[in-house]
C-alpha cells in the first residue's frame, strides 16, 4: 500500500481507537452480566454456559487482546509524551503488539 498512513505509529493509533471503542461498547454488557449474578443467578448461570461455546471463547480472546493492546498502547503513549524522546520509541509499537498477542494466546490456551 503506497499510502501516507502505512507506518507502524499510525497502525498503533488505529488499534488504540478501535480497541478503545470496542472496550467502551463491551463495558455496559460486562456490568449488566455482573448485575445478573446479583439479581437473578439462574439467568447468570444460563449466560455463563452460553458463553462457554468456542465462538464466544474466540470472541473473548479478541477482547483480551484488545484490552491488553489498549493498556500497553496507552502506556506507550504516556511514555512517548511524558518521557524525554528516545529513539527506541518505535520499538514500543512492536512491544505493545507482542505483549497483546501473548496475552491473547495465554487466555485462549487456558480457555480451551
Amino acid at each position: 500500500m503506497k499510502n501516507i498512513h502505512n507506518h507502524p505509529n499510525y497502525w498503533a493509533f488505529i488499534m488504540h481507537r478501535l480497541s478503545g471503542l470496542a472496550l467502551a461498547a463491551f463495558l455496559p454488557v460486562h456490568l449488566y452480566v455482573l448485575g445478573l449474578a446479583l439479581a437473578d443467578s439462574s439467568a447468570f448461570d444460563d449466560f455463563i454456559s452460553w458463553s462457554n461455546t468456542p465462538l464466544l471463547k474466540f470472541l473473548e480472546t479478541g477482547l483480551v487482546v484488545f484490552l491488553s493492546a489498549h493498556l500497553t498502547g496507552g502506556v506507550r503513549l504516556l511514555a512517548l509524551e511524558f518521557l524525554e524522546w528516545r529513539d527506541w520509541q518505535n520499538s514500543m509499537v512492536a512491544l505493545s503488539c507482542g505483549i497483546s498477542i501473548c496475552a491473547g494466546l495465554v487466555f485462549f490456551l487456558n480457555a480451551t
Binding site: I4, H5, H7, N9, Y10, F13, L77, L80, E81
Partner: peptide
C-alpha cells in the same frame, strides 16, 4: 495524536 505522519514525511 502522536501518529507521527509528520516524522515519516
Amino acid at each position: 495524536h502522536s501518529q507521527q505522519g509528520c516524522v515519516e514525511r
